[in-house]
Design a protein around this nucleic acid. Structure first.
Lengths: 149, 149
DNA sequence: AGGAAAATGAAATTCATTTTCAATTAGTTC
DNA sequence: GAACTAATTGAAAATGAATTTCATTTTCCT
């Protein structure tokens, strides 16, 4: 198994123990699959993936485990224009933004320090104390953009 | 009545006529209230406002009229972190972004050409053809930010 | 006024998300 | 390792915003 993945699973186990929660076979399987996959998945999608090999694991548990991963800091929830809640593994504090293709639905991450600074500057102009932000660019990716233009 | 508002109501009437739709008392009242108010309202909120003075107008009609206003270009739909669909009057093509207070829920609009340019530049780096974007800064407004810090 | 097409509003439906609850399981403690 | 307590599981039900249905009413044309 992936070094990264087992490390994070360990982190989860620590988090559970600390809070008096329990490590279970299901949580292990779900976290493993989620971390390995590493995409922006909905609970539904992850459930479908997992139930291929583990028909006994229910949707509810997948859903709850994703929530748990979010609380433990191993994942974040995101909602894009399609209004579905997606989960994404969180390495550390790499805050990044997204490019979303309107045709194929692909989600590309990016990070830009200038953007961050500019955001902070704008917020300050308004006396705002920024905690977090959301920035999504919707359009057509390299593969999907029209041949013309 | 506000010059601006009646002008826009006229725009709506023209839009309806062009498409073979009908101007109705309800649509007039709903559009009027919405345009006058000018906030980021949910269908529910607008419905409550209107039903104070017009108990006979149903939620469904308010909802449908807001959709109609969006289609006619007089409003846009927006979804913030609370996952409710809000409607906002649209003057022309002023694309702006939002500062949202996590405590009081106030929504402040802003516009920044540098931001727009930066977005375009980033998108291009990834071969992306940007159509639209979404940018929200969440934090605490001047009134709500902690005294310390 | 008459008639066709659209609009209305209450109620029903949808659909993702969240909660409930009885049965099961994990992780102590003796 | 057995017993116990609290957490977990999974199926089913509940929730809640958004949307659709449908019988009735209204608009707008002639």
């Amino acid at each position: 198994m992936d070094r990264q993945v087992s490390e994070k699973k360990e982190q989860l186990r620590a988090f559970l123990k600390e809070r008096g929660f329990k490590s279970t076979r299901q949580r292990d399987i779900i976290a493993g699959q989620f971390l390995r996959c590493g995409e922006h998945l909905t609970a539904e999608e992850l459930y479908k993936q997992i139930s291929r090999t583990h028909r006994e694991i229910g949707f509810t548990t997948v859903y709850r485990t994703l929530k748990l991963l979010s609380k433990s800091g191993l994942a974040t929830e995101r909602v894009f224009a399609d209004n579905l809640t997606r989960y994404e593994p969180l390495s550390s504090e790499d805050h990044h933004d997204h490019l979303i293709c309107l045709r194929c639905g692909s989600i590309t991450e990016f990070e830009n320090p200038k953007m961050e600074k500019l955001q902070k500057r704008i917020a300050e102009e308004f006396g705002f104390n920024t905690v977090t932000h959301k920035m999504e660019l919707y359009g057509y990716c390299r593969m999907c953009r029209k041949p013309d233009k």
